[in-house]
Design a protein around this nucleic acid. Structure first.
Lengths: 248, 248
DNA sequence: CCGGAAAATGAATCAAGTTCAATTATGCCC
DNA sequence: GGGCATAATTGAACTTGATTCATTTTCCGG
């Protein structure tokens, strides 16, 4: 049946419209002021129609967060096959996350909000699962980099930790720094000037502490900055497919 | 005027009653189901009376979080003057936080919720400031341990980072792991068995990576566990003033 | 004791999310 | 093409729970 298929597509398009319009409204007025009735009006639909797609307001918010998370995960995809050392690829992980959250600060705040017990419990089981699923490719990509490092001999002596548990350490450091950067009053309380430069520094320190070769002298500020620039250039090239002299 | 003073005290006592009863209700029924009218009833006051103390529900939640955070900060107080190496004191920081959050998981979830843009903005300026202030002693205590380490020569070669920025790294690691441990679906997604054992491991790795002496062999599981036990024993002793062999 | 200020009360108000009976559109079959 | 059954859409009514505020009660100095 082609009719079924068309309907499904139309439905999906409309859901996309709702999600994108909601993102616009949130950017304009803030998460606090998002109202279901206003969103419906902005999309030229009745309030009730929203509930054909989302079981509740929280459900909608989770759908938005999931959408963003998909995009975020896409940014991590090319990292495992980047033409660079395992250590540089790990740096790429940190930089990719920094860059994404810097461009989409709303995403982080929304994700934090929907991860909250209160909001989480108010969304449908399906959306909860979709959100978790959307994040999985990130941990998989990072774990692959770790596994490659172990395989290549860049990372030895941690037989009792699985790659995903090494990856989790960096997830914590990253997420923690995003939290520090985006939570009211915290940056001031900690008097941290540039949270993401600090994250890169601590990231290197953690890599060094895990014995991840080649070790980087974190005291050499210029080397650290140069390495970040070099890896960022690689990332940009991997995102723009028409590389000057690519041979896949 | 003594009357003024008494009134103020009574007011404070009642505020305490509200906060503690609210904590009970949250523990019993969950944050999601806390209702202002039910809280008032549980305290044998009218709903309106609550608003003599808290400008809104969010304001109340922030007051609860602040109360908890005070207690949490108290746990960190003895650490800087613990009779141990600077590295062991830093481990004490991590362990103290792990233990507090393990005993008070509600606190972490509430803190995460009130730190959310939506809730934060709905609380009074005064409460916002009080919450930030309540957390400050923790970063100060940790920063003091870092400063001591630098002074003692245990931590060299990081002239451009201030103690508070080193402390921030551990804040991120800790907060990140609490988030991982307490956010639905994440532990499963990352397949992490024991998040706090992992936190201790990564904590040591970060300390090693910063060059914090004496370095610890993270591959030696027994040594890592023993060190944690030893430091925990110190912490217990510092909390219970009457040590076993003391002449009371 | 009294008068008036301050505090407490809880029913009324309000706001926003959610529902659902009525309406409209859609697609299928003859 | 027309009529029928089903599904989708609508938006006003409903619901829930936070917040307010007119009224009542308490408190305190003189």
């Amino acid at each position: 049946m082609s009719t079924q298929e068309r309907k499904r597509r139309e439905r999906e398009t409309r859901e996309q419209l709702f999600i994108e319009t909601a993102q616009d409204l949130i950017r304009r007025d803030g998460l606090l002021h998002l109202q279901m009735s206003r969103l419906a009006e902005a999309c030229d639909y009745a309030t009730g129609t929203l509930y054909q797609h989302f079981s509740s307001k929280e459900d909608l918010l989770m759908a938005i967060a999931t959408e963003d998370l998909h995009r975020r995960a896409t940014a991590f995809e090319p990292i495992p096959s980047l033409p660079a050392s395992s250590r540089e690829r790990m740096l790429a992980v940190v930089l990719t996350d920094i860059d994404f959250i810097s461009i989409h600060p709303d995403h982080f705040q929304l994700l934090q909000y929907v991860s909250t017990e209160v909001v989480w419990a108010s969304a449908s089981l399906e959306r909860q699962r979709a959100l978790v699923r959307a994040g999985a490719p990130i941990s998989e990509a990072v774990s692959r980099v770790v596994a490659d490092a172990i395989h290549a001999g860049d990372l030895v002596g941690i037989p009792f930790l699985r790659p995903v548990e090494i990856a989790a350490g960096f997830w914590c450091l990253n997420t923690g720094m995003h939290t520090l950067a985006h939570t009211h009053g915290l940056l001031e309380a900690y008097a941290v000037r540039d949270p993401y430069a600090l994250l890169i520094h601590h990231g290197h320190a953690l890599l060094n502490g895990l014995g991840w070769q080649p070790l980087v002298d974190t005291g050499n500020t210029k080397a650290v900055i140069d390495a970040a620039e070099r890896v960022r250039a690689l990332l940009v090239r991997s995102t723009n497919p028409e590389s000057p002299a690519a041979t896949s």
